[in-house]
């Protein structure tokens, strides 16, 4: 079943779609109406969910894949790609999402993991996968399993950017370290960080991950989007930040604007003045119980 390109000379078609999403904002939506607001604001894709991460935190219990009818309804009103989440390791949920025909599957720590030992063998699917990572070893393990796109884990549903920044910086620093290594040191690094050796060779040669890297987890303002993009994220996922703000439409538009011109403080300033309300209330990471930290799910 694994999807091979007809040519080794062409980027994998799964990563190809991620290339199309670069420089944009992917927004979590829980209704068809929100999906239209997101698309109209200029989102490059939407993540169809039953609840945004901050509500998943509040609700507690087991968080599963969203109901198929909800995902289908959101797909029916969207002209942009639609993503949906399955639980870590839950390949049967992923099979359902593939049967629905979503454009991307997020094997996500936001949901309650279904398997604490193994992630999904993503090579078995025709639909591309995005996965979260806190560091380079984790990113390369997921890519080794077939992820076509990576994102930082951050700490979802908090409106607190600190973890996404930490993950972005850590991966950047680890890549710089690998690039500077003598080739003979590479196998030792592969052992230390638990990364596939062949993928580390690619990182050393190219100075970047073998697939695009987006930022996610705690992005709540235009400035949050801009810091992630300046740290090297190629697109941002905004979860609770938009529809938990005072004015989702204006918030969504402002974050899109700031992301497109993340290097121009004058435009990020303009976007910051166009919010029409206050950002979602943030949560201090140390106030979250260890067992409720989503970034610790998966390995």
């Amino acid at each position: 079943m694994s999807q091979k390109n007809s040519s080794e000379n062409v980027m994998n078609i799964k990563t190809g779609l991620a290339e199309m999403l670069k420089g944009g904002v992917i927004m979590d939506v829980v209704t068809a109406e929100q999906a239209k607001i997101a698309e109209n604001a200029g989102a490059v894709a939407v993540m169809a969910l039953e609840r945004v991460p901050s509500d998943i935190r509040k609700a507690g219990g087991v968080a599963r894949m969203s109901p198929p009818e909800l995902i289908e309804e959101i797909m029916s009103v969207s002209s942009i790609p639609v993503m949906a989440k399955c639980r870590i390791g839950h390949f049967a949920e992923a099979q359902i999402l593939e049967a629905i025909g979503v454009d991307y599957i997020d094997e996500s720590e936001v949901l309650t993991p279904a398997d604490e030992e193994y992630h999904i063998n993503k090579h078995n699917f025709k639909i591309p996968f995005v996965c979260g990572a806190k560091n380079l070893g984790e990113a390369l393990r997921r890519i080794g399993e077939g992820a076509a796109l990576m994102r930082t884990k951050g700490e979802p549903g908090t409106g607190n950017i600190v973890e996404a920044v930490r993950h972005m910086r850590r991966i950047n620093a680890e890549i710089r370290n690998i690039v500077n290594m003598d080739e003979a040191e590479l196998m030792g690094a592969a052992k230390d960080i638990g990364a596939p050796f062949e993928l580390l060779k690619v990182v050393r040669a190219e100075g970047k991950l073998p697939v695009p890297n987006f930022a996610a987890g705690g992005i709540a303002t235009p400035a949050d989007a801009a810091i992630c993009m300046q740290l090297g994220a190629e697109t941002v996922f905004v979860g609770s930040g938009i529809f938990k703000s005072d004015n989702p439409d204006k918030f969504a538009k402002a974050i899109v604007k700031a992301t497109a011109h993340f290097n121009d403080p004058a435009i990020v300033l303009e976007a910051s003045k166009e919010l029409g309300g206050v950002a979602m209330r943030g949560t201090e990471i140390s106030e979250i119980e260890e067992s409720m930290k989503m970034a610790n799910r998966g390995w």
Partner: peptide
Amino acid sequence: GESTTMLKL
């Protein structure tokens, strides 16, 4: 990319 997004921008 996404034509809808480009038009909006």
